[in-house]
Nucleic acid binder design. Structure first.
Lengths: 243, 243
DNA sequence: ACCTGAACACCGTTCAAGT
DNA sequence: ACCTGAACACCGTTCAAGT
């Protein structure tokens, strides 16, 4: 038992996620809820209605409980967001045997993309420095995959940030396209409203790409875009590694 | 005057940003505010207190006006966000003469990074498909820089998305580090709270990188990280272009 | 120790005036 | 056409009970 240094304590939800809050055998009434249950309920809500629908009240309603009850499990809305994000992300997949480091890294990227595809609202959550267990496990896993690359410590960390950022960016773009399928703003319609002539005069290259249909991106094309960027990055990394 | 097709009209703020709302010479009292003034006020507020401080009420307060007055200039909070984002981004820089396409693209990326550095809270704003004039002008500008590359239409658009996403990701990371300098969560402290042994057992590679000080990122190191990823991407693109 | 109920400050949005 | 003032539903958060 080492002395605790001064400073802010870990938020309740994060502490629980790391398995530090051994709630077993404590006095008083036993809990009606669990952090995992709260997270699952929040995820179901977000899956159904998107990130904007997430609120303490809506989650509590689903659980048949008062809003304030959630504060027994979580310190704040912010704390809750971290937990929900981490639960929706889930544990990273196992590393495939026998793949070289480039293929292993590519598999990591596709796996992360798939998680985002399953929960598109993840792209709407504020990005944070990851300290939740699953988030860190993903990073750990990617670092492991990069160990065969011959890149240095620093370079592996940089490469991990590059790949992770790439996947998240693409996931956000894919989410936007999903959203465009439903209701909101269609490129062609917006241009119509702005005025095609004004639009073409101001941003001719963008206008011509749109009218060539290159802005319209069905699912398989988004897949190609994803692989395009991934290939560029991995090609750049392989070259650096002297492959 | 062509017939308007059915569908949602352009939000008021966006229409104004494109110069479509010729407010001159209309009946009734003249406006006390302007969209540009509202945006400037919002930017000053966010610069001072961050994205969380942004609200219609706080902006109106700075302008000496009621919250509801803003609805004469903007359709919704969402509409306002688009305008604020676009104003903070500003117009893209001119293309440097004589640079080859790789250097021109790199200059674009650095310029965008600098805009984000000036307004770090931009990284906290929801990412959207860009339809505001400055946002589109940046895209137009990058597409122009890529014209000398020999890449095809589709590839140029993909490359633009890749580079743009990269810069935004890095800007978000840089913002997190800024935030870590002030108050919030320090890596070492969080590990201390989780328990260094548990942490090292679960994510050994991350733990060793942190204890090696590679997580600590002063300003010049962030700069190196930025150039690292940029080099990888541009190297991958050059190779594709057959350079 | 858990959960409820009441209260607070704040948020975006609407509607009916006033000028 | 602009701006105000009142009202609404909703949000996160706190505090004092109850069990």
């Amino acid at each position: 038992m080492t002395e605790r240094s001064t400073g802010a304590p870990l938020p309740r939800g994060l502490r629980q996620a790391w398995g530090l809050d051994t709630t077993a055998g404590r006095p008083g009434p036993k809990a009606m809820l669990s952090l995992a249950g709260i997270a699952a309920s929040a995820i179901a809500l977000a899956d159904a209605e998107g990130a904007e629908a997430l609120s303490l009240g809506r989650i509590a309603e689903r659980l048949g409980v008062t809003t304030n009850a959630l504060y027994r499990y979580v310190d704040s809305r912010d704390d809750l967001d971290v937990i929900v994000h981490d639960h929706a992300l889930g544990a990273p997949p196992r590393i495939p045997d026998g793949a070289d480091w480039v293929e292993a890294a590519a598999a990591w990227c596709r796996a992360l993309r798939d998680r985002y595809a399953r929960h598109p609202w993840l792209s709407d959550m504020r990005v944070r420095i990851p300290f939740a267990p699953h988030s860190l496990a993903w990073l750990e896993d990617l670092l492991e995959r990069l160990e065969g690359s011959g890149l240095g410590d620093r370079e592996r960390l940089q490469a991990a940030g590059l790949l992770d950022g790439y996947v998240r960016t693409r996931a956000g773009a894919a989410r936007d396209l999903l959203r465009a399928d439903a209701g909101t703003p269609d490129a062609g319609e917006v241009i119509e409203r702005i005025g095609p002539d004004l639009f073409a005069a101001r941003v001719p290259r963008v206008a011509s790409l749109i009218s060539a249909g290159l802005y319209r991106t069905p699912h398989e094309v988004a897949e190609e875009d994803f692989e395009f960027g991934l290939d560029r990055i991995l090609s750049g990394l392989r070259r650096l590694a002297g492959g």
